[in-house]
C-alpha cells in the first residue's frame, strides 16, 4: 500500500510540476490577503495581539488560509480523473484502494506546505517578526501538513459523494470562507462577539492557527501547540477515514 501510494504520489507531483502556473495562482490569494490586511489593520493599536504588531499576529492566519485554499479543491481533480477514466484504470489494477485516496491527499498536503513556506518568505520580507529556527518551523509545518491532509480528504470525500463539479465547488466556497472568518486567523478571540467565539471553538481552523501561532510568534508555547496538533491529528484522521470509506463505496 505504501509503495502504491508513493508511485501515485510521484505521478501527481510530476503532473503538478508540469503546470507550475496553477500552483502559483493559488498563492496569489493569500498574498493579497497578507498585503491588504496587514496594511488595513496596521493601526489597530487596541487589538490585543500580545504586544506584537498585527502582521506578526496575522501571518499564522495567512499560512493556514493558504492551506485552506490550497487543499480544499483537491476533489475537483479527482472528479476530472474519474471522468477521464484514470480512476477506472487504477481500479482494474490490483493497486490498493486506500493508496489512491492517500496519494492524492498527501500530494495536496505537501503542495500546501511548500506554498506556505513561500508565503512565509514573503511575510518575512514584509518585516514580520517570526521564530524561524528549524524546530519551530518544522512544528508549524507539521500542523499545516495535517490540516492540508484533513481538508484535502474532506474535499475528495465530498467529490465522491456529490459526483459533480458544480456542487463541489459550491461546497468548497461555502466551507472555506466561513471557516476562515469564524476562526482566530484574522482576529484574536478577545475581539470576537460571543457567538463567533463559540463557533471558533469548534472550528478546526482555529486550532490549526493557534498551534502555528504558538510556535512561530512570540515565546513558543508548546502546550497550546500540542493541543492544536492533537486536534489536527484527529481531524486529519477522521477526514481521511471518511474519504477512504466513501471511495470504497464507489463500487456499485
Amino acid at each position: 500500500m505504501l509503495a502504491d501510494t508513493w508511485h501515485l504520489f510521484l505521478k501527481y507531483t510530476k503532473i503538478t510540476l508540469r503546470m507550475p502556473m496553477w500552483t502559483l495562482f493559488t498563492l496569489i490569494q493569500p498574498l493579497l490577503w497578507l498585503i491588504i490586511f496587514t496594511q488595513l489593520f496596521k493601526n489597530f493599536v487596541q487589538a490585543p495581539t500580545d504586544g506584537g504588531s498585527y502582521i506578526d499576529f496575522f501571518v499564522p492566519g495567512v499560512l493556514v488560509m493558504t492551506a485552506l485554499f490550497g487543499s480544499s479543491w483537491s476533489g475537483v481533480s479527482l472528479l476530472r480523473e474519474i471522468t477521464a477514466g484514470s480512476v477506472d484504470k487504477m481500479l482494474v489494477s490490483p493497486v490498493s484502494r486506500v493508496a489512491i485516496v492517500l496519494s492524492r491527499v498527501m500530494h495536496s498536503a505537501v503542495q500546501v506546505v511548500l506554498q506556505t513556506l513561500t508565503i512565509m518568505l514573503v511575510a518575512w520580507a514584509f518585516g514580520a517578526n517570526l521564530n524561524l529556527d528549524p524546530i519551530n518551523l518544522f512544528l508549524a509545518m507539521v500542523s499545516i501538513f495535517l490540516l492540508g491532509v484533513g481538508l484535502a480528504a474532506l474535499s475528495n470525500g465530498f467529490a465522491i459523494i456529490l459526483q459533480r463539479e458544480e456542487p463541489l465547488v459550491m461546497i468548497g466556497n461555502l466551507m472555506t470562507l466561513p471557516l476562515m472568518f469564524l476562526s482566530t486567523a484574522m482576529v484574536p478571540k478577545q475581539f470576537m462577539p460571543g457567538w463567533i467565539e463559540a463557533v471558533s471553538l469548534v472550528n478546526p481552523i482555529t486550532y490549526a492557527v493557534e498551534s502555528v501561532r504558538a510556535v512561530l510568534v512570540g515565546t513558543p508555547d508548546l502546550g497550546t501547540y500540542g493541543f492544536g496538533l492533537a486536534i489536527m491529528l484527529v481531524f486529519a484522521g477522521l477526514s481521511l477515514a471518511w474519504a477512504v470509506s466513501a471511495f470504497n463505496g464507489l463500487r456499485d
Binding site: 505521478k11 510530476k14 503532473i15 508540469r18 503546470m19 471522468t83 477521464a84 477514466g85 484514470s86 480512476v87 477506472d88 484504470k89 487504477m90
Partner: peptide, 9 residues
C-alpha cells in the same frame, strides 16, 4: 475502457 485512462500530462 471507453475513456482513455492515460494521463495527458
Amino acid at each position: 475502457a471507453q475513456k482513455t485512462g492515460v494521463d495527458h500530462f
